[in-house]
């Protein structure tokens, strides 16, 4: 089993829904378990949200591409855009919430990378030819991947 597919869409919230929906539809049709497809969708939505909001600063007129490669052991997704690079040229770390925070100080954002790290097996980032390339890897066999909690 080996499949590849590519999707490209405008870097807006609504176009991203459709574009990611296309990728997810293909993965579902290829017979991947529903739980895994749910995790992939969430990780992809978070990665693409980051591109729209940060790499492109919410400005319209840009495109995002997603390449998916599915083999028996692995699902590899690559998200490509020509927006601003990630700060420091690296993937941000997951953050751990302090549940003891007073209500008024609870964060209303910054959960995206935390989710991406926990839902994927590997995250890689490269800046090449003025483009961002974020790779999300999901292992399809072996040790269960999801639900990894961050150490408190």
């Amino acid at each position: 089993m080996s499949h590849q597919c590519s999707f490209e869409f405008d870097a807006t919230d609504l176009a991203a829904r459709d574009g990611i929906g296309g990728v997810i539809g293909r993965l579902r049709a290829s017979g991947l378990p529903a739980t895994l497809v749910g995790d992939v969708e969430l990780a992809l939505v978070e990665a693409v949200n980051n591109v729209i909001e940060h790499a492109f600063g919410g400005k319209p007129g840009h495109r995002i591409a997603i390449h998916a490669r599915l083999s028996e052991a692995m699902l590899d997704l690559r998200i490509i855009d020509d927006g601003r690079p990630l700060p420091g040229g690296r993937v941000p770390q997951a953050k751990s919430l302090d549940p003891g925070l007073p209500r008024a100080d609870l964060p209303e954002g910054g959960f995206g990378w935390t989710l991406i790290h926990q839902l994927t097996d590997q995250v890689d980032y490269q800046r090449r030819d003025a483009c961002n390339m974020l790779s999300l890897r999901f292992r399809l066999t072996g040790t269960p991947r999801t639900g990894r909690e961050i150490a408190p």
Partner: peptide
């Protein structure tokens, strides 16, 4: 059936 971190942030904001 689906919520992302923006949705989660909006629920936290509503609670605050």
């Amino acid at each position: 059936s689906f919520i992302d971190s923006s949705g989660l942030g909006a629920i936290v904001a509503a609670m605050k």
